[in-house]
Design a protein around this nucleic acid. Sequence first.
RNA 1: GCGGGUGUAGCUCAGGGGUAGAGCGCGGCGCUUACACCGCCGUCGUCGGAGGUUCGAGUCCUCCCGCCCGCACCA
Length: 881
Amino acid sequence: MLDKTYRPSEVEERIYRLWEEGGWFRPRPREGSTPYCIMMPPPNVTGSLHMGHALTFTIQDTLIRYHRMRGREVLWQPGTDHAGIATQLMVERKLAREGRDRRSLGREAFLAEVWRWKEESGGQIARQLRRLGASADWSRERFTLDPGLSRAVITAFVRLYKDGLIYRDKRLVNWDCALKTALSDLEVQMVEVRGQLWYIRYPVEGEQGRHVVVATTRPETMLGDTAVAVHPEDERYRDLVGRHLILPLVGRRLPVVADTAVDPAFGTGAVKVTPAHDFADFEIGRRHGLPMVPVLDEEGRLNDNAPEAYRGLDRFEARRRIVEDLTRLGLIERSEPHLHHVPHGDRSQTPLEPFLTDQWYVRAEVLAKPAIAAVEEGRTRFVPSHWANTYFEWMRNIQPWCISRQLWWGHRIPAWYGPDGTVFVEESEEAALEAARAHYGEEVALEQDPDVLDTWFSSALWPFSTLGWPDETPELRRYYPTDVLVTGFDIIFFWVARMMMMGLYLMKDVPFREVYIHGLIRDERGQKMSKTKGNVIDPLELIDAYGADALRYAILASTAQGRDIRFGRGRVEGYRNFVTKLWNAARFLDLHGVREVRETDPQPVREILNRWIVGETVRTTAQVRRALESYRFNEAAQSLYRFVWDFFCDWWVELAKPHLAESGSKRRQETLRVGSWVLEQVLHLLHPMAPFVSEELWQRLYGGRGGPLIARPWPDPPEAWVDAEADREMGWLIRTIQALRAARTELNVPPRAWLPLRHSGAHPDTLARLRRHEEAIRRLARIDRIEEDPEPPRPGSLVVVVDEVTYSLPVGEVVDLERERARLLKELDRVESELRRLEARLANPDFLERAPAEVVELQRERREETARRRERLARALQAIG
RNA sequence: GCGGGUGUAGCUCAGGGGUAGAGCGCGGCGCUUACACCGCCGUCGUCGGAGGUUCGAGUCCUCCCGCCCGCACCA
């Protein structure tokens, strides 16, 4: 016997073990089966489950379970990411707490620390994913720093290098002074900052008293100025082009150059040019052959190129001092507050410096071309499709991708330098030595590049590195390209675009055929969840409180395409209630002996009630399937919810009660058999979305017949089981009962009172229905007897019109006559305005002429119906006086 | 500035040419042998605004307004 409520905490772990130990998460090749593969976006190895994970993995698991049941050979490839910067920072912080630091430890010992940390906390996210119910193939779990995946990284790097798609270059990069590493463009966040714009006088050489005023937000960089630029058409400065200014505080001679990049309307129209510390200036410097004078070091302090007074100062301190000094010299003309965007590191949250260094780059502009074409040609499809625009926008303006990082945690770049700096890029040190020997004609010592690769470089290979690439494994052949990638829009550039580029280049095919982009989980007020705001909801806490199924269902039911999700625990509670409701419907059937039912087919079925619910089940099955196949998770969740609660529980169960109370009748047998079948179907449809409770009920009520639910075939009942006649009749019955109940409640008839029901005007068919469903109407509308009575309703009666029938419930003094009159008048009013609308429409010759015939016919029928209804209401109103 | 999203019941949101919907909330009532994590009934709308297309527009088109999110700037 089932308990009164479902207790997830007592079920989930056991059920999960049943699946995992049964090997049901592994792909099961069958004769003629086609693979279905999703690559799990690898969470950070040291991460823990947050709502964003809960969203993305619930969606993925739902797809995986659905397709597994559809008979596909399913692989959900799990794993974790080494998350270079994030993980290294975490360990450095831990060391700092222990009074240690990375540099004094040395590279090797530090890496050992990180690995230890990874071993300790690395399994957490996988354990938490299990609690969510994720049916990934854990036997194939991968980590981006595994030997196999590392080999893939090296192979990819060397191949791209030898093909000329990776190169080393000295140019400006976004430099993070706090982390002391280069970053890619994507790791840069523009932050709006209230700054200051200073107008500084640069004296003109050889012309006492004349100066050019330049405006800058960064006075400290002036120490690295090597020119002043003006627009070639700018009359104010035309005579100065080619002459020189004297850089204050430094005394350097600065040529005045003409460059169209200068906007004469901004500031003074004259720009100081610091090629070593500004991207735009770098370009100007290149065009005019200007020297580059870096004045900052890797930590953002002024270096020896600066005048002695400023050396060693932090860049912000230097700014203050320089402004002070210039003010004292009378060289600040004025300054004003200035709102502008300043690049910040997305990890360190500190302002970045454009910094001149040697770094490794990928020619993304070359790799992007086929990746753009693949989406244009539909070989990879975005869902919702408008995300393709975002993808195109970025890919068409893509910049070289800086892939080297001055970190220790990650894949070390397979490049070795000879004594003269010649670089040898090879898959191993041996191969590099070999190449060096060939180059130099003698044995030389090589030094490996100390840098590691951007984490996203290894992530970009994930769809094939996890399948064994560069080896030609059977898995690689079988599962690549994968079917769908599920992820958030924030990662389209970081990851999706790069997988496309690498997949197309190295595998000669797209990594996935579809990309489903979901929204972001926000809190109830629409705010992003963040630790600092303190508005994070912990999915594990929700699982503890309501069960994994309730959380999953709440997520899916809120996941409309292309929208962010406002999420609060109230929703989870609501779907917990739904799970309980289903549980109790199952319990009801259990009490009536559903476990004894052997038949698995609802046919043949005679009872109208049962014919109806079978048809509704078939319809729901189709709806859920269509919704899941088009990634409309909210629709799948909603139609099943409605079916279970409104159709199955509220009507079928209520109406089936007397059937099931009979002992040994054919009707009882049929009803139990149909109830059993419907529940079985529901459990199947529910399983991708709420796997635990569905499996638990399946195991307990159906003894897991035909194996666990996880591996059962998706239901596909024939369309022909939809029964139009049963639909009409049940529709009528439900309408009738609802109308009677509504009238009673509105007139405050006490629920305790059993009333007689008189009716007139019923067609013979309706009379038959009334006889067939007499018991139901009596019980559910609290009627003690039903009789035909051609007389008009008497005064003091409650009158209800359903279709052609006028019902009257003589309630005597129980009823408030005025109230009843008001109720009928209100309804009459509604009916009359509806009638006016219909008549207006049907009086329009254009409508009659141009609207499709069946639409016109429908409106005619509706008009007749409404007119009759008005008549009956008017008569009733008259009759009750 | 460029691109995209979004505006429908008190709240959160579905719907996408042919009778305005759900959940939650709110109000009332609790007769009922699965469930009070429940049942029954009710309340709630100029579908952001203005034009247009159409026999017919929440729905399609144009413009405008509000909110949100990317991308890109100018020192």
